[in-house]
Design a protein around this nucleic acid. Structure first.
Lengths: 221, 221
DNA sequence: TTGTGTTTTTAGACAAGTCTAAAAAAAAGT
DNA sequence: ACTTTTTTTTAGACTTGTCTAAAAACACAA
């Protein structure tokens, strides 16, 4: 079994998640953004991962994971979501506290551990953010019921499930306006000319730009 | 709070455990042995850790942890032993399977996680190998009841609790002769001229050199 | 199709942690 | 006290993953 560094694993995971939203190859800049690093560093890493047959890469053409790369990415995502479930279900952490710790735990190398943890948790199909947990074989049984706030329809009731890009700064902004994970919202209106969305929560009305609405994940009720 | 790399943490832990057996300063070579690395690498690291006030070090004089260094070492040992307890108690791993995984888990950075894990496990005082688990404040309440086989007296009955230096090669040797963690032994005889020790286990008699007996930890019954 | 701007790659540098080989210091033997 | 041996340190090199600055490739508009 190919042994990967934490950095290599993080790249694979980032490419995998970007691939779910972006059609076709992933560009160097998109990856650099996601990894908050420089494009030149990304190029170096892509060469290395390509060498190891984890992805396909050709100069100036972006990259795409091979089956081998995908299965590695899914294994990491599996670990991340199992650990998040453990932290919330067994250690009573809040949804918003577990991401950073799971980012560390996802790199622990031991298939045996992962599988026993899975069993200990009762083979959960979804993590605390409503995202599906890949099985031992990498298959995802469950289709995520998360959508982005930007995709919500008027009159919809939903619960805040998470944010796409969990930068501390953004989380702090949400905290300031009183929006937390688990908050229930009502979608009141969508302005057609700029895509702004108006919601009601805890009795007050709040308006978000389309940019922000694309960062907030909700689960319709 | 000072942020340490995995490598720095491993050095601190090694120095701490060596200090428990060795009186006075720890020599560069002893550390190199323990870390299975070269003396020159150790020297480099000692300079760095000294710079950070984690230990005292003077050329050719070996090193000793400062209070700051000790408290870091104890925090890592705490995490290691709590995770081992988790793996054995909650995920039903065997004593002999948990060390390597705990070596990884001990580097997870989150005091909150450690303390909640402690609570989840019911604030255990000893780990699965009979070693005491330092508390949140770094204090050790419990005195280990482990001794080395080399220190056993004739007629003593005991259980194999672990090995001092868990090199795979040594573990394989023990496996080959049928000695496992949890095996009950009777100390039959000690030869005074070379320190060899004769034990009985599962009905058969086995003889160990003093060198080997110093590597095997037992708990007297 | 040619110029302009953006994206991506190259080239060279740096920090961390390791190594080898050689020098320096300490310890031990006679 | 003078060798010899052992221990420890220095010096220089290598790897991984990152960076900056500059060059190359690409994309698109006039």
């Amino acid at each position: 079994m190919l042994r990967l560094t934490q950095s290599e694993e993080n790249y694979l995971k980032a490419i995998f998640t970007l691939s779910q939203d972006i059609e076709g190859a992933i560009s160097t800049n998109d990856l650099a953004d996601k990894m908050t690093t420089k494009a030149s560093s990304v190029t170096d890493m892509l060469k290395k991962l390509c060498e190891k047959d984890l992805l396909e890469y050709q100069k100036y053409q972006g990259c795409a994971l091979t089956n081998l790369g995908s299965s590695h990415a899914l294994a990491i995502i599996r670990k991340h979501r199992l650990w998040e479930t453990f932290l919330v279900d067994k250690l009573s952490f809040g949804w918003d506290e577990v991401h950073e710790i799971a980012e560390q735990l996802e790199h622990i190398q031991s298939t045996e551990l992962t599988d026993r943890l899975d069993e200990f948790l009762g083979f959960p199909k979804v993590d605390p953010h409503g995202e599906p947990i890949p099985g031992k074989d990498g298959r995802i049984e469950f289709v995520s019921n998360r959508i982005l706030l930007s995709e919500a329809t008027i009159g919809m009731k939903a619960i805040i499930m998470g944010v796409e890009d969990d930068q501390t700064e953004f989380l702090q902004y949400l905290n300031k306006i009183g929006l937390h994970l688990g908050t229930q919202i009502d979608v009141m209106d969508k302005l057609s000319f700029d895509g702004s969305i108006m919601i009601q929560m805890d009795g007050k009305q709040v308006q978000f730009s389309i940019t922000i609405a694309k960062q907030i994940a909700i689960k319709p009720l």
